[in-house]
């Protein structure tokens, strides 16, 4: 009896872990060095091209319906002559304890064995709960079935779908590239090499501010960068355990503390 109870408890405990995995095969992570980011928005463009993101136009953008899976947030500080602008790229943080996964009734968003927060478009019924629960506001909804103007309709990426109206979507860390890299590695009978897989934003970043890799691999570049004393994660006190690690920007005089809201 006691043994059965123990087993049941153990099972219950396992199911309490998001995604039910004790340890992920990979723990994909992006490290963003804010000291190197110059806010050029090349990553935004690359993301649009890679992930079939619609261009919604001026009016819809003004209503905050732009499809920027990654966006450069700008914060202006101070009065006119003494103005300082800070920026931070925000994308889906692929949280370890994601609130969006709690909200979804149909498992349209769940945790996969790579530690990623996956969005399955076909399962989505559009209840908006995931987007409302998300503290980073990185989820985007297909308000209409969008069309692409020529010649943009000729450059749609065949590796992933075009979403229809009524479906939620978000940054996937370019899961199609991750799948591709993993499969190639499997065919060649080896593990995935560090730096072999690059999401579109990381590949495009001209200053090399973004680094993508596996945090489970202690030798990887992200593992080394994650030990940086400047490291922080967005809203760590919300206990969402994000997979995106920011390296704090060092301000004039070497201080980076209390410079901006939320440790920019």
């Amino acid at each position: 009896m006691g043994k059965l109870l123990e087993r049941l408890l153990e099972r219950f405990h396992i199911y309490r872990i998001p995604g039910y995995y004790g340890k992920y095969d990979h723990q994909w992570t992006i490290v963003i060095d804010l000291d190197q980011c110059d806010g050029c928005e090349a990553c935004v463009i690359a993301c649009h091209a890679e992930n079939n993101l619609p261009i919604v136009g001026e009016k819809e953008c003004a209503n905050n319906r732009a499809f920027n899976w990654i966006r450069i947030e700008r914060y202006v500080e101070g009065e006119y002559p003494d103005v300082r602008v800070k920026f931070i790229p925000v994308l889906c943080q692929q949280c370890g304890r994601a609130r969006c996964e709690v909200g979804c009734p149909t498992y349209a968003t769940y945790h996969n064995q790579d530690g990623l927060n996956v969005q399955v478009y076909n399962r989505c019924i559009g209840t908006f709960t995931c987007a409302s629960y998300c503290p980073y506001d990185v989820r985007h909804f297909n308000w209409f079935s969008y069309q692409w103007d020529t010649p943009l309709d000729q450059q749609l990426n065949p590796d992933l779908t075009v979403r229809e109206k009524g479906v939620m979507e978000k940054c996937t860390f370019c899961i199609q590239r991750i799948r591709d890299g993993k499969e190639r590695a499997k065919d060649e009978g080896r593990g995935v090499r560090d730096g072999e897989i690059l999401p579109a934003c990381v590949q495009t970043c001209p200053t090399g501010a973004m680094t993508f890799g596996d945090l489970n691999d202690p030798e990887s570049r992200v593992s080394r960068l994650a030990k940086d004393p400047r490291r922080y994660r967005l809203f760590e006190d919300l206990n969402t355990e994000p997979s995106v690690i920011y390296l704090k920007r060092v301000m004039e005089g070497g201080s980076s503390k209390d410079e901006a809201p939320f440790n920019l």
Binding site: E60, R65, F144
Partner: peptide
Amino acid sequence: TGQGVTGLNS
């Protein structure tokens, strides 16, 4: 048309 006819936004 889609949910876009509402005033909902990001």
